[in-house]
Amino acid sequence: MRVALTTITALLLAMGFALMTGCTEGTEVTMYKPGVYKGPKDPLVDKQRDPKQQEALLARFNQIQTDR
């Protein structure tokens, strides 16, 4: 009888601890996406999409690469 009680208490305690570890664990999981840039966004990326910026670079090119 005593043995049965200690075993059940031990089992209950073990289950309790097991459950508690489960409580503190976070549930979200990060999926690793290979080949995708992991860093902060570069403000230049948006700037390069601006057609005015592209025009400026083209104008600059014509200023440099000239055999004038």
């Binding site: 700037k47 390069q48 910026q53 592209q54 400026a56 670079l57 083209l58 600059r60 440099i64």
Partner: peptide
């Protein structure tokens, strides 16, 4: 590039051998 300028190596090439810019124009 953010200032609207092109790479300095191409801008300063002594004989204008090195060219940098939009591939079509290059």
């Amino acid at each position: 590039i953010a200032e609207g300028k092109l790479p300095l190596c191409a801008e300063m090439c002594a004989t204008k051998a090195l060219i940098a810019g939009d591939g079509d124009v290059v």
